[in-house]
Amino acid sequence: MNFSWVSTYWPLLAAGAVQTVLLLVISVVFGFILAIGLALAQINGPRGLKWLARSYCTCLRGTPLLIQLWLLYYGVGSLLPLVPGLRSSFLWPVLREGFFFAAVSFTLNYAAYEAEVLRGALLAVPKGEIEAARAFGMSRAKVLRRIWLPRSIRIALPTIAGEIVLQLKATPLAFTVTVMDLYAVAYKVRQDTLLVYEPLIVVTVFYVFLTLLVTRAFKIVEAQVSIRR
């Protein structure tokens, strides 16, 4: 095993690790916010909105993430330069990068999966708790904000942790749209040094470390939630 190359490539490795973590954080945060709306639309939305939310979740959960990513990057991305004035706008430096399309694709995909998790958790909240809150005179918005949504998130915590780990393992797909994430750096190292296993071992250790970090963080949150009960 030869790891002498690490001293030369560590700046690239650090930058790739940052890109990977950024993709994970952006997709999880914004995807979770979108998932809340999708879950509520499927439960309490009007028929048309309910149908749209279910169709969205079914389509994105039923197609590979790689295809969704390529449709955005090679499809929508190829049309953006045709929009008048876009290339000269302040948005172009962001919209021309593969990172933007990867972040959008990962966010939309994560939202579809998380919406189903939240939908099940919302339905699992005992109806007595919601009825008791309404009996105290709480509005529907306050019941959702203070009782229904927090309770459902507590129920779904273990599954949410698992979904975040799965999202982390999907981040190497960003390499296919020119994003220099950690896997892309490992690929470059392999091309430059002809070493195959060592770069992949470094990537594996990083992903295992992040997985342990996420798992530990959610265990602490679950323990705190149990104490407050």
Results as ranks from 00 to 15, higher is better:
2 N>I: 02
19 Q>N: 06
79 L>E: 07
50 K>C: 03
92 W>M: 06
211 T>R: 08
127 K>R: 15
143 V>Q: 12
192 D>E: 13
193 T>Y: 04
75 G>C: 03
64 P>H: 07
55 S>E: 03
56 Y>A: 01
157 L>Y: 03
220 I>F: 06
228 R>M: 09
46 P>S: 02
10 W>F: 05
7 S>Q: 14
153 I>C: 01
228 R>I: 07
180 M>D: 08
33 I>A: 05
136 F>W: 06
51 W>I: 05
224 Q>L: 11
95 L>Q: 14
219 K>A: 02
127 K>M: 08
110 Y>T: 09
165 V>D: 01
51 W>C: 03
134 R>L: 04
199 P>W: 07
65 L>E: 05
201 I>D: 06
228 R>T: 14
12 L>G: 00
189 V>D: 13
181 D>I: 01
91 L>D: 08
34 L>D: 07
16 G>T: 10
113 Y>V: 13
33 I>S: 00
113 Y>K: 08
181 D>Q: 03
141 A>E: 12
171 T>K: 10
198 E>N: 05
68 Q>L: 12
188 K>Y: 14
229 R>E: 12
40 L>Y: 13
147 I>F: 00
132 A>H: 12
104 V>G: 12
201 I>G: 02
155 I>D: 15
70 W>Y: 15
172 P>D: 01
137 G>S: 14
80 L>Y: 12
192 D>R: 07
49 L>F: 10
215 T>Q: 10
30 F>L: 12
163 E>I: 03
34 L>C: 09
215 T>E: 12
187 Y>G: 11
206 F>G: 06
78 S>C: 08
21 V>S: 03
70 W>Q: 06
171 T>M: 02
172 P>Y: 01
195 L>P: 13
10 W>I: 00
87 R>G: 14
21 V>Q: 03
20 T>C: 08
115 A>I: 11
132 A>D: 12
137 G>Y: 14
128 G>W: 10
79 L>F: 06
153 I>V: 13
209 F>G: 14
150 P>F: 01
227 I>G: 01
124 A>T: 14
207 Y>T: 04
131 E>H: 11
193 T>L: 06
82 L>G: 09
31 G>L: 04
111 A>M: 09
25 V>A: 01
8 T>F: 09
113 Y>T: 10
96 R>D: 12
23 L>Q: 10
217 A>F: 05
160 I>D: 06
24 L>T: 06
191 Q>T: 05
7 S>E: 05
76 V>Q: 06
22 L>G: 02
4 S>G: 11
141 A>N: 10
111 A>N: 14
204 T>M: 14
146 R>F: 05
114 E>C: 13
55 S>L: 08
201 I>A: 09
31 G>V: 05
40 L>Q: 14
140 R>L: 09
144 L>D: 09
49 L>I: 11
164 I>A: 01
183 Y>G: 02
91 L>E: 11
76 V>S: 04
167 Q>D: 04
186 A>K: 05
197 Y>P: 15
13 L>E: 07
221 V>Y: 00
183 Y>C: 04
186 A>P: 15
150 P>I: 00
55 S>I: 02
24 L>E: 02
212 L>T: 01
9 Y>R: 01
48 G>R: 00
154 R>Y: 09
